[in-house]
Design a protein around this nucleic acid. Structure first.
Length: 495
RNA sequence: GUCGCCAUCGUAUAACGGUAGUACGAGAGUCUCAUGAGCUUUAGACCCGGGUUCAACUCCCGGUGGCGACACCA
């Protein structure tokens, strides 16, 4: 029987600024979902990468005094290392300056052109020479560009347009489907905007700029970066002929931030329709992070470096915090106090201490050898109940609730120790046998969220690997436990 | 400016139109295997003003406050 496939992507990042905590959130959430599906035994393909063809990069590179390609090479590397530090289990890391991508980007442009849904027209707008970009009337203060305080010029130049307007009905149908955009409020935003504003043709090229992918039918133009960027989801799979493309497309989930919802749920589907390609099954729109209740911004100086947080508290603590604390369907707040509270209360006290007390007792009463006992059906039932709940939550992309369910079982185990009192020597074998099995399963359950810790638990349980979800039932395990270091060192919070 | 989303104990969050729940924090109690951990338990909330209804946290209208989208921002 063929394995079920699961293709998940994150947005690709702009490389003109270093990764911040918001990037970490998106990567970690997608990673947890990807790992969960791997644990289910599915054929998972997890894609992330960097978006490098924006004019911004050329500008930033100039300021840096290095060539644009060198600049993006350096910064893309930073993002890749960032993923590695956070233990992001990507299967591929696409860069839009790679030949394999540019080729497909041009191919899609050409295909849509040949369908006569890209045409040459005139773009008129106001152009700020300071921004080196078109700006909107709304960005003006006293007819001047807010940022550069100069009067922008009116420009009328030729541009290729995509007939987005032709897709009004088809897009409305697509976005109205309940499963396509998650969560509901994000879907409703798009549906009402499509209804109210309607779809207008979209300029998909820029004339006379020096950075970007050339328009295949007219090299004076460069492909609009959004069209180029969106294509990464299929170029990475080797569209149109590669067997990876045939196996994994359409994507099961695109994980994106709310700021780019419109591009992913309106423009991208329309482009795909025009190119006669299947639509992704689902777009998951997560919220944004604030820091101490404030919007992340350079001017406020509250940009948090996730690498520093990871170094200070451990990568799993950061991962756990992002996955558990931030509600899937809305914005969340990052603050160190809350992170420390999760670390001390849930990682150290609930999980760390459970492992510690059980391993200690097995060592103390049985010399470390896992006793042979009778399965406690009730405890085993509780395990499968919480697992099923968690699985449904992951299916609905409510990772925070999935983590909560797993912790529900951890709490049950702590209660189990108290109620059964293994130190009183009545059915001690049975009690500790069941607790051992429970912990073995906990290591499996927490693996998608905190992979490093999961392995540490398995090691203390005398196992050489963490199993997958098939092993989520109580069985006979021959092992010698060995008490290791504390899983999580508690941290005292001082302001 | 146009459009949209949101508003619940101190904090973070739930609730088919029918008893406002959960977690952290705070208070009290208790066990002793364990990382001063665990377990039990108490107190504590529906932004304001109208309307619909036998009944409104829930639906409608208005206000206030927060947030966002509106051609390149996870």
């Amino acid at each position: 029987m063929a394995k079920k496939k699961f293709y998940i992507t994150t947005a690709i990042d702009y490389v003109n600024a270093p990764p911040h905590i918001g990037h970490a959130y998106e990567k970690v959430i997608a990673d947890a979902i990807a790992r969960w599906h791997r644990q289910k035994g599915e054929g998972v393909f997890f894609l992330t990468g960097t978006d490098e063809n924006a004019q911004k990069n050329a500008k930033a590179a100039k300021e840096d005094g290095i060539g644009t390609q060198k600049f993006v090479n350096k910064n893309s590397q930073i993002f890749k290392q960032f993923c590695d530090t956070l233990k992001i289990s990507y299967d591929d890391f696409i860069r839009t300056t790679e030949e394999r991508h540019k080729k497909v980007s041009q191919l899609i442009f050409k295909k849509i052109y040949e369908n006569e849904e890209i045409y040459l027209g005139n773009y008129s707008g106001i152009y700020c020479t300071g921004c080196e970009a078109f700006i909107t009337e709304k960005e003006l203060v006293n007819e001047k560009c807010l940022e550069h305080n100069i009067k922008p010029e009116k420009i009328n130049e030729e541009s290729f347009f995509f007939k987005l307007s032709a897709y009004q009905e088809d897009i409305l149908d697509a976005v109205s489907k309940k499963s396509f955009i998650v969560p509901d409020n994000r879907r409703e935003e798009i549906v009402s905007r499509v209804k109210q504003e309607g779809l207008k043709d979209l300029s998909v090229s820029r004339l006379n700029i020096d950075w970007g992918v050339p328009v295949p039918i007219d090299e004076r133009h460069k492909i609009y970066v959004w069209l180029d960027a969106l294509v990464n989801y299929i170029s990475a799979l080797g569209y149109p002929d590669d067997k990876k493309y045939k196996k994994y497309w359409p994507a099961d989930v695109h994980v994106i931030g709310k700021g780019i919802n419109w591009f992913h749920t309106v423009i991208w589907p329309a482009l795909l329709m025009s190119a006669k390609i299947k639509l992704p099954k689902k777009v998951f729109v997560h919220g944004y992070l604030t820091v101490n209740g404030k919007k992340i911004s350079k001017s406020l100086g509250n940009v948090i470096d996730p690498i520093k947080v990871s170094n200070k508290y451990g990568v799993d603590t950061l991962r756990y915090f992002l996955l558990r604390e931030i509600p899937a369907q809305q914005d969340g707040d990052f603050n160190e106090k809350a992170l420390v509270a999760r670390l001390n209360g849930e990682l150290a006290d609930d999980l760390g201490n459970l492992l510690s007390r059980v391993v200690s007792m097995i060592t103390k009463y049985f010399g470390g050898k896992v006793p042979n006992g009778k399965i406690d059906k009730e405890l085993e039932y509780e395990l499968s109940a919480q697992f099923e709940k968690a699985d449904k939550f992951i299916e609905n992309l409510e990772v925070d609730k999935a983590v909560e369910s797993v912790w529900g079982f951890i709490k049950t185990c702590n209660r189990y120790v108290n109620d059964k009192k293994p130190w009183e020597n009545e059915n001690r074998e049975d009690i500790l046998y069941n607790l051992y099995e429970a912990l073995r399963c906990i290591a499996i359950l927490v693996n998608p969220f905190i992979p490093e810790t999961s392995e540490k638990i398995a090691k203390q349980l005398g196992l050489n690997k963490v199993g997958d979800f098939k092993e989520l039932k109580f069985k006979k395990t021959k092992a010698i436990v060995n008490k290791g270091e504390v899983l999580f060192q508690k941290v005292e919070w001082k302001k």
